[in-house]
Amino acid sequence: MHSAHAHPAACENCTAALQGAFCHQCGQSAHSPVRSFGHAVEEVFESFWHLDGRIFRTLHQLLRPGRLAVAYLAGHRTRYIPPIRLFVILSVLTFFVARLAVHVDAGTFVRQSPKTPEVPSAFRDASTADEVDNIRRALLAPLEQSRQTMPERLRTPIDKAIRKVEKQAERRQRELKKRPPVAAASGDAKVAAPQPKVAPAPGAGNDPVDIGFLPGFVNRWLTGQAETIRLNLPRIRERPQLLVNAFFASVPSALFVLVPLFAVLLKVFYVGSGRLYLEHLVVALYSHAFLCVALLGILLLSMLGGQVATVPGTGAVVGILIAALLLWMPLYLWLMQRRVYGQSLLVTTVKFVALGWLYFTAVTTATVILAIASLARI
């Protein structure tokens, strides 16, 4: 009778006869993690430490400008994480942290500066001076009651709200006084009752988008997106963090377009280097992987600076470190470009500036498009 830990006679993956702890045909382990808890735990830790070691080796080489790209293009690939996998992991991690680090919610600074209570603009529907006065009293009553129950140092937002209500009431009174009297067609004629307002149909809030060189279905789609953005604007004003989250969630997808574009630019600028497009793509992936690492460092430093802001001197140190990272990013890319392609200082600098300008233009355009698209995704 075989024990629970006995090896099977044949590989469970390819049915080849087993001669040891691993299959010589496909490399699968003879141990089955689903039949032994000990083997399952062993496999988890083995995979973790193996992957962890590759991550450290890869990041160590990545932080040295061009070293990882040169090694990968020279065929030394076993010890390192593949460039596409490294880029995906770092980009997703970086922009996930960005969503946690960047806060623009209206309630974030409540303790530092109390928010002025929102006052509805109800006066525009008032048609007589008496209606304006009634609305003014209805709005002021709860504000004045709240003001009386609050300490003196916390009354400033309430006082601002009271003044705002008074200004709205005065403005509407002036508008009503300037309105010309309605002339009757005859002595017996009655003034027509105001017609009820009809809510606009969906898509009717904005003029339809009509760009001549685009097909009709694209213009209709853009019109729908514009209407969605218009409807989302009130929510963004109340919770601007929604726009930040939507933007950062979309950035990794945009990078999958920008990175191949950067590789195309490298191919054009280094057309005589003899390298294939996929080799330029490897350089582009490692370049953006480093930028993700640098941006991740800036985000973490910003979060740390917020936590230790009360400690004297830490703010200056954090600021210096962030500035150093910002300066290191273009210098790193220049050094990487020179090490990979091996051209002179002058030629590398000219190509770096020209390529950087073109790519910066593309990134800026993509950022604007992405910000607009994020308005429709909330």
Rank of each mutant, 00 (worst) to 15 (best):
Y270V: 00
L261E: 02
Y332S: 07
P234L: 05
T364V: 13
A98H: 05
E170F: 03
L265M: 09
M303E: 09
H24A: 12
L370N: 11
Y359N: 09
R57T: 10
K177V: 13
E144A: 00
N245C: 08
N232V: 09
V34D: 12
S186H: 05
H60A: 14
K351D: 10
T361E: 03
E170W: 01
G20C: 06
A354I: 14
F247R: 04
A126T: 11
V165F: 00
A199R: 13
R77Q: 15
E118S: 12
P240N: 06
V92P: 03
L300G: 08
Y359T: 09
R137Y: 02
I81H: 01
F45P: 02
R137V: 13
S344D: 15
A122F: 01
V293M: 04
F248V: 08
V259N: 02
F95Y: 13
G75K: 08
W49S: 10
V70E: 13
P252I: 13
L358A: 14
A183Y: 01
D188G: 10
V218A: 10
W334N: 06
G20F: 08
F213D: 09
A16Q: 10
A40I: 05
R339M: 06
S127Q: 14
I84P: 06
V182R: 09
Q307R: 15
Q195A: 12
L86N: 03
D207W: 02
S29F: 00
L327M: 12
L18D: 03
L93F: 13
A169W: 07
S302P: 01
F290Y: 15
L222C: 04
G187T: 11
Y286E: 02
P142C: 03
L243M: 03
H7V: 10
R338Y: 01
A185K: 13
A9V: 11
C11W: 04
L68N: 05
V368R: 07
H103K: 14
W334T: 10
R79L: 10
I158E: 05
V347P: 02
A249L: 13
V283L: 04
V132T: 09
R179A: 13
R153A: 11
Q168G: 11
H39G: 08
T367E: 09
Y80D: 00
A373W: 05
G305Y: 04
D130K: 15
T348H: 00
R57E: 01
A30L: 07
A204F: 04
G187H: 11
G20R: 08
A9I: 09
W357K: 11
A193Q: 13
A6G: 03
V353C: 03
I81M: 07
F269A: 14
H31L: 09
P157G: 05
M303T: 12
L59P: 01
L139M: 08
P82A: 12
L214E: 08
Q343T: 12
E279V: 08
P252F: 01
A10V: 15
P200K: 14
V268K: 10
L321G: 05
L140P: 05
P260L: 03
F109H: 12
C14I: 09
F37Y: 12
A371Y: 06
Q148K: 13
F360A: 15
T310P: 02
I158M: 00
Q343R: 13
P8I: 12
F217D: 11
A289G: 11
P114C: 09
K164F: 02
E118C: 02
L299Y: 01
H103G: 07
T58I: 03
V251Q: 06
V368C: 01
A246H: 05
F87K: 00
A309W: 00
R377D: 10
L62R: 08
A74L: 02
